[in-house]
């Protein structure tokens, strides 16, 4: 299982929240995930994301998975 490249996945949660004027705490409430875990995701510290979490976030923010997660190019 390749694990070396998980650091290249950038989560755009900050930008999406700013565009919608939503706080992390409100998103956590709507999605049903703890603020702690959303913070981990927002700060690019997550190593893996459940499909259920991704779906819930995308449903609430009305965006696609590709809008939320982007892969940064290799240095």
């Amino acid at each position: 299982m390749p694990t070396e490249d998980h650091g290249r996945v950038h989560c755009r949660l900050d930008e999406l929240l700013a565009e919608r004027g939503m706080t992390l705490a409100r998103l956590a409430e709507l999605v049903g995930v703890t603020v702690v875990n959303l913070s981990v995701l927002k700060n690019d510290r997550a190593k893996a994301v459940r499909f259920s979490t991704l779906t819930a976030i995308c449903d609430v923010l009305r965006c696609e998975v590709g809008d939320l997660l982007v892969v940064t190019p290799r240095p």
Binding site: L24, T34, V35, V36, N37, S39, V40, N43, R45, A46, K47
Partner: peptide
């Protein structure tokens, strides 16, 4: 007693799954 910024995915289960 924790704030969101205090927590990372490398923290212990204790910290990450506190109510």
């Amino acid at each position: 007693s924790l704030t969101v910024e205090d927590i990372s995915c490398f923290d212990s289960i204790d910290k990450r799954y506190a109510d």
